[in-house]
Design a protein around this nucleic acid. Structure first.
Lengths: 244, 244
DNA sequence: GGGGTCGTTTGATCCATGTCAACGCCGCTG
DNA sequence: CAGCGGCGTTGACATGGATCAAACGACCCC
């Protein structure tokens, strides 16, 4: 491993060009030269403590954010207080694209653990992506994937039964942790049962019962927020409705 | 009504610059010069007959489409056959953005009546939007609005009761028809009860019963697919959970 | 170490929506 | 005009998940 040059260490830490999340983020496939331009754009970072909002409904939209470390949820809230969690974002994922259309954020983003994001000023991103074709295309892909992800969640909310929803949720988390180099079989949930329930369109009691059932059936081990997945094929079978 | 100039009539019909949907589509706010460039890009149109697919899951992604006339649904289908309708698209709305991320379409688009779309080759759209800032921004807005729309649907699917869902659906249709210069109070549904149900995460019988209930309560008039909205505030009240 | 709080688990019961079934309406076709 | 098929409506009943309630466990602060 090459030696760090002391004087530039701070800037290295910030740079996209040095970021371990490159292949997950906007910088995939960029030349070194273009990476450097992106580095300039993504200068600032921001720490968000557990429980704090990165942004709220109604905030002016100025930037999108890449999760550098930590874990977020996004949600929308109805006048009568009902909450729908629309997503959980982990390292390397992009937040804030909801604000582009109206110039105002349309959902809330809350850190579920102490986190840090890269701030990507949106006007400048548009400018730079007029210059760098690959960056432009990467950004379009990120938005498109968000749409496809949302369609998957609609399928889940519209047609799946409680245990199918939870199985899909666990398999999705497992796969995303794997993609980040963590264990596919063992992880800590950063969110409460209630937040999982809101995301899946279920009440927290139903989520809890489904966890217990999966544990009884030997599919997973549960201890509070610590999850151990014991039988991935078994979970997949539940999803494909082979059960019963 | 001005007389048409025979020789150029066909080309006039095709052009974005002459299109009555400008303010709904990608061309909003473009200069005449830029509109002309967009016209060149959007040369081809395509007719899709009722029941036919505009594209299917797995088709190569090459273009997005603007609905010129007609009415579409998009859906995703699970291996076991369960269908989730992810949206209904009417005049001026954009279809196909699900394909950008993977270069392959991730949902099906089906015409619910004889329809016509403008074909917007995506690679060329990216090229042109590097040149025309406003076009670039319009496209980003369209994608962002799609994401926000999806979040609204998640809220509906995750937290609302059957009658709330149907009220939201009717109000949304009414508003979109209004924006297109049609009556806000009277319209024909192009989709079956089953398709409405799939979209709203309900069974067709539940949709039918909710329609009947609304009719009994004097909120709407229903005759098959013909809907007359009689009490918009009443429907809004159901949405805001004032009922019971 | 004790007490409080928050999150979770589990049980008992209820209810909204799903399921199953019959029938009716409408438009199409022969 | 008759018959047929697709779609919609309505009723009776079943059930998955919600609701209400109690107790437990982990963690934090004093």
């Amino acid at each position: 491993m090459p030696q760090a040059i002391p004087v530039s260490l701070a800037s290295i830490k910030v740079a996209c060009s040095q970021c371990s999340l490159r292949e997950l983020c906007l910088s995939e496939g960029l030349s070194n030269e273009d990476l450097q331009k992106l580095d300039e754009l993504v200068g600032a970072r921001r720490k968000v403590r557990r429980g704090q909002n990165l942004y709220r409904v109604g905030d002016n939209f100025e930037a999108i954010y890449a999760v550098r470390t930590g874990f977020f949820k996004t949600d929308v809230i109805m006048e009568d207080g009902r909450e729908q969690v629309t997503g959980f974002q982990m390292t390397g994922e992009i937040l804030g694209m909801d604000g582009i259309g109206t110039e105002i954020h349309n959902c809330n983003a809350v850190a579920l653990e102490d986190s840090e994001v890269c701030i990507i000023p949106f006007a400048q991103l548009e400018t730079l992506s007029r210059e760098i074709t690959t960056l432009q295309h990467n950004f379009h892909k990120v938005m498109s994937r968000e749409i496809v992800r949302d369609h998957g969640l609609m399928m889940l909310l519209g047609t799946m039964r409680a245990e199918e929803r939870l199985a899909a949720f666990l398999l999705n988390l497992s796969q995303r942790f794997t993609a980040r180099g963590y264990s596919p079989a063992e992880f800590h949930l950063r969110m409460t049962r209630e937040e999982i329930g809101s995301y899946l369109g279920l009440k927290l009691e139903t989520v809890s019962r489904a966890f217990s059932r999966f544990q009884e059936e030997g599919l997973i081990g549960v201890q509070q927020k610590h999850i151990r997945i014991l039988d991935i094929p078994g979970l997949k079978k539940i999803l494909s409705h082979q059960q019963s």
